[in-house]
């Protein structure tokens, strides 16, 4: 009996494989890509447990156990970095998501197609500029020596003297948040626009018949309909909370705000790679990866409990 079940199962398995031959073949390159570029490098994690020195083979390295992690958790800078990374990530995540959704909602409400297209194009153009250029634009805009932000504020008589925005530590996180929103709002809105376009128009018709105005339609039809998209994107983005970018902070920082500007990637560079402490840098990387995985899975569980759309 058992064997016959087995053969039947096996039969159906191979049968299925045969049926989906083309599809499977099509996925192979992507699978290979993931394995080669995402899984094979995990071997490098071994470095975190060594006192790695370049140019030596794995057998010649000295093994130090958890020493690098001990150093990491005993480093006061680490906690500062953790705070900055989380703060900036959350600011970027919250404001990035909210602004993108609002822009998407506003764009769908615009009836003039040409205006809508122009606004959309302009809003996502900054996404294609590299941070190297964008950071200089931000620096220029915020400069005290004729920067547009200070000029406008002074013309409006809101301030008397130019403010050195980039030199105020408490402002740094918000400058990062604001420049992120400026750069990514249009790009982020695209996916919500697509989700909104997929909503059944009859829902709006019936809502209209029931007497719902525009705002009520947005609140009761549009937002609930794109809720799955929002939650999936949020869960996915939570995986990046401990990354929070590199170029943006690196290029906008200066000595004055260093306590608020240093994020994990910069920390890995300054205290790891630049000092040839590759093992230490790897340990930091492992910490980030592990926390990210935990965050994504717990967010996923929460979404499940609340009956929301989930990732896994």
């Amino acid at each position: 009996m058992n064997t016959s079940v087995g053969t039947v199962k096996r039969g159906t398995f191979w049968h299925r494989v045969k049926q989906q031959k083309v599809l499977i073949l099509m996925t192979i390159p992507f699978l290979a890509h993931v394995i080669i570029f995402r899984y094979v490098p995990i071997w490098g994690w071994l470095m975190a447990f060594q006192n790695y020195w370049p140019g030596k083979s794995i057998f010649q390295q000295t093994w130090v156990g958890f020493e690098n992690f001990r150093l990491l958790f005993n480093d006061p800078v680490f906690y500062q970095v953790l705070r900055n990374t989380l703060a900036m990530s959350i600011i970027k995540l919250v404001f990035g998501t909210v602004s993108s959704i609002i822009l998407a909602l506003m764009l769908t409400e615009v009836r003039r197609i040409r205006f809508k297209k122009v606004v959309q194009t302009i809003s996502y153009l900054p996404h294609f500029i590299s941070w190297v250029v964008a950071a200089n634009l931000v620096r220029d805009a915020l400069s005290t020596d004729g920067g547009i932000v200070n000029e406008v504020l002074m013309k409006l008589r809101i301030i008397k003297e130019p403010i050195m925005f980039l030199g105020i530590p408490a402002l740094f996180w918000w400058i990062i948040g604001a420049s992120h929103v400026w750069k990514e709002v249009g790009w982020g809105a695209i996916i919500y626009l697509a989700a909104i376009a997929g909503i059944d128009p009859t829902l709006y018709e019936s809502a209209m018949i029931d007497g719902a105005g525009r705002l009520k339609q947005i609140w009761y039809i549009t937002l609930p309909s794109i809720r799955p998209t929002i939650s999936v994107l949020l869960i996915m983005n939570l995986g990046w909370v401990l990354s929070s970018g590199f170029e943006q902070q690196y290029l906008l920082q200066n000595g004055r705000v260093i306590d608020y500007a240093r994020v994990f990637t910069i920390y890995e560079l300054d205290y790891g790679i630049k000092m040839m402490r590759y093992s230490f840098a790897t340990a930091v990387g492992i910490f980030r990866s592990v926390v990210s995985i935990i965050l994504v899975f717990s967010a996923n569980q929460l979404a499940k409990r609340w009956g929301q759309e989930r990732l896994v």
Binding site: V77, G255, R256, Y271, K274, M275, F280
Partner: peptide, 23 residues
Amino acid sequence: PAGSPAHIEETRMKDVLHRYVPE
């Protein structure tokens, strides 16, 4: 020496300078 305690100390000291001097 690369990665030595003195090297780490040097980086930290420069961090302190970077932080405090503008202030």
